[in-house]
Write a protein that binds this DNA or RNA. Structure first.
Lengths: 341, 341
DNA sequence: TTGTATGCGTTATCAA
DNA sequence: TTGATAACGCATACAA
């Protein structure tokens, strides 16, 4: 390579990195040679010599959930600003795969690792990353030894409930699997909103999971009730759940959405965009979470892992108003004027 | 590291790779040191010295499409059998990102690269990969200078049409954007089935795209027709399209699915799993495509890129029968007894 | 401004 | 069975 250009190896390095000043003539010679040989820099050798890497790794628990893909997008964009690339690894809900991929990224000595892991058992995953900075994404719980970014599910639940209440709904039904931490948080927010509004009644219906089929059962239940006992507003803990409610209500009763029953979901999943009645929902701040995660990573990268003070960043969800809670007028993303907490 | 263990650097390498025979005592010493220091092998140095890598790269055009995620799963599983890891890069429909990530993987000197690219402009993307084996995935067209794996869309269309015909449908409507190559192929298969069955009439309705909203328009059209002019079987070029048809027909008419109108989609998208009436569809052989792609890659890896003979592998889709085409009886994956071509 | 030498962490070869 | 040493392709510091 240096031979082809007729210059020294150090000079080549200089034109490649713009380290020192190089004559226009020599630069041209080198660039000629690059084109002729189709030279591509060897990242392995580069990061070995330079002692740093230009890629970040993101271990994602479930890529089929568009929420995590949104996080990846946000992270990718923020990383790009610093010239960093983002590589993804899909752990597909498997803990062993999570370990494998974290290990892989550590072996590759990537600049930093993002982990979106199982809520249950991720507590020590980041410890595998000897020396490589890690940020846990969407990981509830106290983390004093690692940075993390989480969505504010409590405020999200609050937003959903307040929206229904402000539109005159007085009998709310919250449906969801409260065994799941995020669902529990959302319920907490709903309860807070209800507590702030005397006269509003809240009912909670447990579901097994938060899938479409669970929602259908909830919808069937609601559809069968007498008018007096029927809620006029349903908050589903997830969009898929809401989708099931909607299907069941629309097909097995003459109830109208939103006139007889306002319905709001959670997540702003792609799956919910195209429902028969467009679904109001609470949008997860996916891209923002990704962005903040990368920022934390860079922060730790600069200050050095040793003297770095770990912290948790919370991102706020936003209300998305569509047809399932109000009429045609004024659909769109609501102002986020309701401050969290 | 070698110092910590009190042995030589070469010995450490031997116990790590099991290259040469090592005394049980020295092995123990080394393993002690590994545990003590929390040693993790440096992949950069490894692939630099060994001249090969243990990871594959997959540049994916659109991770929000579950089809590509299926391909990734298949590829990951097959790669795992050989001890290779699969890293993902989401190019999000952007050609420049595709280039960026292909370049990145080449720089990293991964063992091989899988590319799922835009149908239009991917024709020379693999040329960027100087020396690194590439397999194009889901890339229609003639590729004499690169291996590729494609689904058999013609046969898929044929399967869908034959299914409706065998269940007594005589007036078929194919809806889709035939500007898209895969859609055109599916239509070709449908036409073939119709040609084989005298008495069956085929109508083609052009759509702008293959999204839910396009499907709604088709559904509205069908719902408004008089009985005599109405098709009794609809083949939608994609599941989202079918979803739109279903929504519109169910909500704006009294037509029953499948009694009055049989409906079949294409892709087996997640989005279609949970529709009000479960959607019959043609399942893309996603995992198989990923598997075959990795096999081609390994093949090229063994024979050497020079003497390698590039080829194209075709994977067969499968009919998935759900409630939208027949009654409750016999739902499930049909036998694939209908041979392609 | 350009060339030269050293080292990054590992494998692989050969000598001990 | 083990130790020493030369690559691998690059950055970097220093000499020319």
């Amino acid at each position: 390579m240096a031979r082809e250009a007729g210059v020294s190896i150090g000079t080549v390095s200089n034109v490649l990195n713009g380290t020192a000043r190089v004559t226009e003539a020599t630069r041209a010679k080198v660039e000629m040679a690059i084109g002729r040989l189709g030279f591509v820099r060897n990242a392995s050798a580069w990061s070995l010599a330079a002692g740093r890497s230009s890629t970040l790794g993101f271990v994602i628990i479930d890529l089929s959930n568009s929420y995590f893909l949104d996080i990846a997008r946000g992270a990718e964009r923020e990383a790009g600003k610093t010239g960093l690339n983002l590589l993804l690894a899909n752990s597909d809900l498997s803990e062993s795969k999570q370990r494998t991929y974290v290990d892989l990224f550590v072996e590759e000595r990537v600049a930093g690792i993002l982990i979106a892991a199982n809520h249950g058992s991720d507590q020590r995953l980041h410890k595998s990353a000897r020396g490589v900075p890690v940020v846990m994404v969407d990981a509830p719980g106290d983390h004093t030894d690692v940075c993390s970014v989480v969505p504010d599910n409590i405020h999200g639940g609050y937003l959903a409930a307040m929206h229904l209440i402000e539109h005159g709904r007085r009998h709310l039904l919250f449906a969801g699997a409260t065994a799941l931490v995020p669902v529990r948080d959302r319920l907490t927010g709903v309860e807070r909103a209800v507590a702030e509004n005397p006269g509003v009644v809240l009912e909670v219906e447990q579901t097994r999971d938060v899938q479409v089929e669970d929602g259908r059962r909830v919808g069937d239940d609601v559809a069968l009730r007498r008018t007096a006992e029927r809620p006029d507003g349903v908050i589903a803990a997830a969009d898929l759940l809401a989708l099931g409610v909607l299907q069941s209500v629309l097909l097995s009763s003459s109830l109208r959405v939103p006139e007889d029953l306002a319905l709001i979901g959670y997540d702003d999943n792609r799956a919910a965009w195209d429902s028969a009645v467009p679904l109001s929902t609470v949008r997860q701040p996916g891209e923002e979470i990704g962005l903040e995660a990368v920022r934390l990573l860079l922060e730790e990268l600069e200050t050095g892992t040793e003297s770095h003070q770990h912290r948790m960043v919370t991102c706020e969800p936003a209300l998305v108003v569509r047809a399932s809670t109000i009429g045609q007028e004024g659909a769109g993303i609501a102002s986020t004027s309701l401050a969290p907490r």
